[in-house]
């Protein structure tokens, strides 16, 4: 990983919290950092191509956009994990899919525009070869959703 300078840390900490919503947001950030717009943009492009940033973008509240979410845990035969994971990965509303240690060894999140749509997708997954058990875990309250690391 690229060695981060003091300036980089300040820049990334600022960028992790929020991009100002104005005509020249990177100039506004540069003001806060005591530098100019081009310096901020050039360094961000470098840090992005060096792979330090997973994503610079907009993060939406899926519930407030009308989508419903569910965390699903699957118990899958060890030799079927790869084939099941590969099928799951192709479903657009499935955003995260992780293999974990334990009896429930495949965990994914699904966002769907309707409960019918969700039911169809989960019925299809439950019927896959090697899937022994499925639990559906729904959230009422998201206490913390920000992935931020103080650098």
């Amino acid at each position: 990983m690229t060695e981060l300078s003091t300036f980089d840390r300040a820049l990334l900490n600022l960028l992790q919290s929020s991009i100002p919503i104005c005509s020249h947001p990177f100039a506004a950030m540069a003001d806060q950092l005591g530098t100019d717009e081009q310096t901020v943009l050039n360094r961000l492009r470098e840090l992005k191509s060096a792979g330090c940033l997973r994503r610079i973008g907009t993060f939406f509240d899926s519930n407030r956009l009308g989508y419903r979410g569910v965390l699903v845990a699957l118990s899958v035969e060890p030799d079927a994990v790869e084939s099941v994971a590969t099928i799951i990965n192709q479903i657009p509303g499935i955003t995260h899919n992780y293999e974990r240690e334990g009896n429930f060894n495949l965990w994914f999140t699904l966002l769907s525009p309707s409960s019918e749509c969700e039911q169809d997708i989960l019925d299809g997954i439950a019927a896959l070869d090697g899937v022994n058990d499925m639990i559906r875990l729904r959230s009422n309250k998201k206490y913390k959703v920000n992935v931020q690391f103080k650098l």
Binding site: Q16, S18, I19, L53, T58, F59, F60, L65, V147, F149
Partner: peptide, 9 residues
């Protein structure tokens, strides 16, 4: 509806 605009490391 927008939670945040910014970077994820």
């Amino acid at each position: 509806k927008i939670r945040k605009m910014g970077a994820v490391l």
